[in-house]
Simulated scan of single mutants.
Amino acid sequence: MRPNARFTDVQPIGLDAVAAAAGTDPDVLRLENLDTDVPPPPAAVAATTQALASGEGNSWLPLTGLPVLCEAVAGELRSRTGLDYDPSRQVVITSGGTSAVMPVLLATTEPGETVALTDPTYAGLLQRVRLSGARPHFLPLRVEGGHWRLDRDALTQVTTAAALLLMSPSMPSGVLLDRDDWAAVAETCARTGAYLIYDAAMERLVYDGHPRINPCQVEGLAERTITIGSVSKEYRMIGWRIGWIAGPVDLMDRIRMAVIYNTTVSSGFAQLGAAAALTDPSGSGVDEAAAEYQRRHDTVIDQLAGLPVVRAAGGWSCLVNATALGLTAPELSSRLLRYGRVAATPMTAWGGTIAPDYVRLVYSREPVERLSDLRYRFDTALTSG
């Protein structure tokens, strides 16, 4: 096989290997994945079923999204940002939120340019930066008072960047950027001329009454922000594979072209289901889902009291420090599965120098009852062998 420089630093995501090792044993606590057992909105299921039965949406067109969904996304963004997005010029539908990342990177960066990300960050963001030909620059997250915090001083050290690629709440840490964090991001973008690529997939999955802050609400960011969203996390519609990109008109022309040549078109049936979720007057259960994920999160934190687990402020995963337990993250992951029957992913590919110390615990698919013996499983894993 001939060498290919794009893949020199790209690392395997890890969770698929852990899932394969866990197999189908029902006793294994599945904390490695990002599936969820919280059901999708009934309105989305009904709309998708109706579209399948009638054949509506079984088309290649429009290549960048059905008007009804583009309009629904624009309405969703208006409620979050207060901004009016032109659904025909500023919104593009993609095959899931993660599939939107590469077209945005191709449209905003040149090979060799820098993209700033937090450490830890989602491997699907970091490794796409590398595949695009850009270079990651890590902004460390620090543990303060048992919570993750963005190191704002690290932002002042960013001297050149094509983009900042950020998520809040973020996978895998659950860090939530506050208004002062976003103000520091705005200053960095203004100083370097960088775009903000904002992954908003979990924006409303926030715990403990923390305010939900969209960066477009912060002075100086609206005109620089490209927002990536999806129905996968908040709306629990993972299998629909529907996401979107929204941003400045001039840049969206370039992004639209990259989307067309990357994935051609998203499922029309699924787009109609997504539109139903976004326009559902009941809210499609987003707040209820966030409350359920917090119950599970709090159970994990209570179960692991005294161990080096870091609280999340939102999302549906948290991290435990393997190094503080005297193990590498792959070693802890292996011991958890072998002795504790817990599938959990080492964060080897999820950052720079900080992430590889941690193992991720995803509680989106495991109810509180199943999580209630997590401490016993951990203790067994740590003391066996």
Rank of each mutant, 00 (worst) to 15 (best):
D151Y: 01
P3D: 13
L361A: 09
R6Q: 12
S284L: 04
M171A: 15
A222L: 09
A5N: 06
Y339T: 05
M252Q: 04
N33E: 13
S266M: 07
L307G: 06
A277H: 01
A381D: 00
E76N: 12
W182R: 09
A17M: 12
L139D: 08
S132W: 01
S95I: 12
P26N: 12
D153A: 15
D16G: 11
L336M: 11
A184H: 04
L155F: 06
N33A: 14
T227M: 05
A277V: 02
I301Q: 01
N262E: 14
D373M: 11
H137T: 12
A43R: 01
G23Y: 09
R179E: 15
R370T: 04
W60S: 09
W182Y: 12
S79P: 00
T299G: 07
S384A: 15
D280E: 05
S230L: 09
A107P: 04
I213W: 01
R224W: 06
T299L: 14
P172L: 02
I238Y: 12
E113P: 03
L29A: 04
V231D: 03
D373R: 07
H210R: 14
M1G: 13
R78Y: 13
V18Q: 05
A355P: 02
G220Q: 05
T323Y: 14
R256T: 13
P308K: 02
T383I: 09
S79R: 12
T8A: 15
A276L: 02
G23K: 07
M167S: 12
L117Q: 02
D357N: 14
L205Q: 01
F138W: 06
D180C: 06
P248E: 10
C318Y: 01
S334T: 12
A222T: 01
T383A: 14
A324D: 15
E113A: 11
P172S: 06
